[in-house]
Amino acid sequence: MNVFRLAGDVSHLVAIIILLLKIWRSRSCAGISGKSQLLFALVFTTRYLDLFTVYISAYNTIMKVVFLALSYATVYLIYMRFRNTYDSENDSFRVEFLLVPVIGLSFLEHYAFTPMEVLWTFSIFLEAVAIMPQLFMITKTGEAESITTHYLFFLGLYRALYIANWVWRYHTEGFFDQIAVVSGVVQTIFYCDFFYLYVTKVVQGRSKMSLP
């Protein structure tokens, strides 16, 4: 464990908690893409299948359980508890355009053709594009509440910190995970445009971020 990965995991946890609290306290999921949250729940489900078969550390196990629980709780709030506030009309991204290529690629590119490895690879590739429906929804509505932008900022920051973690681990222990690194770089690039808007707009203290 290194400071970059710890900061990344904390940033990821903060993002998930920000969103969950926003929905719970405002009792509304307006402006939130339920599809992205479903995809994130699928990412954690397919990635953490080794939760009961492999023990790495208490931290690893606890964080996996927390991420799974919070992501399912978020999906529950959106599609069950506050479903009448779910903006399905604007959450219109065709997720099959993400799932088909990701499934295809994970059958093409993986470390081993075993169910666990292919599902893990699927979760890595899926995570890179899972935010697309949310970013698409923001471009469609033309704006995002500032709390939603904070969610996206910490979510984007988490994988950027993981890149620093991979650089660190490569130089200190020769660790290299090509699939995770390539996918993580692509994922972070998707946030660059948003990061620019976030820094130039939201940090100026505007309540809403309106896209050009």
């Binding site: 080794d50 550390s57 964080m63 973690n165 290299f176 995970d177």
Partner: peptide, 10 residues
Amino acid sequence: RTHTQKKDEL
């Protein structure tokens, strides 16, 4: 070398 087989990350 494409990877060091170590799934210890979240």
